[in-house]
């Protein structure tokens, strides 16, 4: 059995997001640590919420990602998903006066 979260890209922004659930319902966050986790065989609810969000044009290309829980938070098992979650592994070029905020999940 593997622990899973659901991920997708936000339609408007294109950014990587994770399906989260709180007392008021479900929402999407760029912070993997907030993502709702479920064992593979219990991920049905997450799956249907993710698909619903696709139908509602909130996100695109939703799918499940295998993760583990560590001291530092939720961690994807695959390299590709870690890069998606934490951002490029290289130092990004910097310019002055850049307007777009660099918001990434830590």
């Amino acid at each position: 059995m593997t622990l899973q979260v659901y991920t997708a890209s936000l339609l408007k922004e294109g950014l990587v997001a994770y399906l989260c659930i709180d007392t008021e319902g479900s929402y999407w966050s760029t912070d993997l640590n907030k993502a709702a986790t479920a064992e593979t065989d219990q991920a049905e609810t997450l799956k249907s919420l993710a698909e619903q969000a696709e139908r509602e044009n909130i996100v695109i290309a939703a799918y499940a990602v295998d993760v583990e829980l560590t001291e530092n938070g939720t961690r994807p098992l695959e390299n590709r998903e870690r890069i998606r979650a934490y951002g490029p592994t290289i130092t990004l070029p910097q310019s002055s006066d850049t307007k777009q905020a660099i918001v990434r999940a830590a």
């Binding site: 990004l92 070029p93 910097q94 310019s95 002055s96 006066d97 850049t98 307007k99 777009q100 660099i102």
Partner: peptide, 9 residues
């Protein structure tokens, strides 16, 4: 464009 709509590069 890089500055205004992207991350500066």
């Amino acid at each position: 464009i890089a500055r205004t709509y992207d991350r500066g590069y």
